[in-house]
C-alpha cells in the first residue's frame, strides 16, 4: 500500500484547518488549532487512553459478535425455506427502525455499562453482514451446483465446500461496511448514557468547554476506527487471496 498519497492529503487537510483559523479568526472554543488538539491529546493521554480502551473493546466485541451472528443467521435463512419466509420480512422491517432510536431503550434495559453499547454495535453490524452473506449464498453459480450434483455431493458437503466459499467475497464486502459502522454503534450508545468511553469523554469535555479535549477524543476515535478497518481489511484480503475482488480493491 502506498502510504505517501493519503499522508499527503492528510497533511494538506491539517494545513487548510490551520489556514481557516488564521484567516477567519475563529475562537479556539469553536475550532481549536491542530497543534493545541495534539497538545491536549498528550496532556490528557492517561484519561483518553482509559476511555479509548473502553470504546475499543465495545467496538471489537460488537464486531466479533455481529460477525458470528450474521453468517449463522444467513446460513439458517438460506437453508430452511420456512425461516426465510417467516423471518426475512421481519429482518428487513427491523431495518426501518433507526438503530439510534433504540439506544435509550437499550441503555434502559441493559444498563450504563458496556453491554448496552456492545448491543448497539451488534445491532448496527448484524444487518449488512447477514444480508451480504445471505445474498452470496443465494447466488452460487448454478454450474457449480450442477457439478456437485453429478459428483454425488450431499447437501451439507455442497454447502461446506462450494456455497460457503463462493459466498465469502460477498460476506467480505458486508463485513467491510460493518467494520466502518461499528464505531457509530459504540459512540451513540455512550452518548445516550454512560460514564465511560470516548463518547462520554466528548460529551463531558463539551460540557466543560474543553473543546481541544473533545477534538483530541475525536482524533483518537478516528484513528481507532481506521486501524480497525485496515486490520479487518488485511485479514479478509489474506483469507480471500483467490478472489478477483481482492485484486480489484487493491489500494
Amino acid at each position: 500500500m502506498n502510504i505517501l498519497k493519503p499522508a499527503f492529503v492528510l497533511v494538506t487537510l491539517v494545513i487548510i484547518w490551520q489556514l481557516i483559523i488564521i484567516l477567519s479568526d475563529v475562537p479556539p472554543y469553536i475550532l481549536p488549532p491542530p497543534f493545541s488538539v495534539i497538545e491536549a491529546a498528550v496532556a490528557h493521554a492517561d484519561i483518553i487512553l482509559v476511555h479509548a480502551t473502553i470504546t475499543f473493546i465495545e467496538m471489537v466485541v460488537g464486531l466479533v459478535i455481529g460477525t458470528l451472528l450474521g453468517p449463522s443467521s444467513a446460513l439458517v435463512l438460506s437453508y430452511y425455506r420456512p425461516a426465510r419466509q417467516w423471518l426475512m420480512p421481519i429482518l428487513v422491517i427491523s431495518q426501518a427502525i433507526p438503530v439510534f432510536a433504540l439506544a435509550p431503550i437499550l441503555v434502559l434495559w441493559l444498563g450504563y455499562g458496556m453491554i448496552s453499547k456492545i448491543a448497539m454495535a451488534v445491532l448496527i453490524i448484524y444487518f449488512p453482514v447477514t444480508a451480504a452473506f445471505f445474498d452470496g449464498l443465494k447466488n452460487t453459480n448454478l454450474g457449480y451446483l450442477d457439478l456437485a450434483h453429478t459428483m454425488g455431493a450431499s447437501k451439507s458437503s455442497t454447502l461446506a465446500h462450494i456455497r460457503v466459499p463462493a459466498a465469502l467475497p460477498a460476506f467480505a464486502s458486508g463485513l467491510r461496511v460493518a467494520t466502518a459502522m461499528a464505531p457509530i454503534g459504540a459512540i451513540v450508545g455512550e452518548w445516550v448514557g454512560s460514564s465511560e468511553g470516548l463518547g462520554y469523554l466528548m460529551l463531558h469535555a463539551n460540557g466543560r468547554m474543553q473543546i481541544d479535549v473533545m477534538f483530541a477524543a475525536l482524533l483518537i476515535l478516528a484513528l481507532m476506527a481506521i486501524i480497525l478497518y485496515y486490520t479487518v481489511d488485511a485479514g479478509l484480503r489474506r483469507l480471500l487471496f483467490w478472489s478477483p475482488e481482492t485484486k480489484l480493491n487493491q489500494l
Binding site: D146, L147, G152, I162, S243
Partner: peptide, 26 residues
Amino acid sequence: SYMAQDDLLLPWLSVLDNVLLGYKLR
C-alpha cells in the same frame, strides 16, 4: 460424469484440488 461448456473450476482451489473435487465432496 458431466463436463460443461464453462470449465466450472472453483477459483479458490488449486489445479490439483480442483481435479480432486469430487472426492472431497464425497
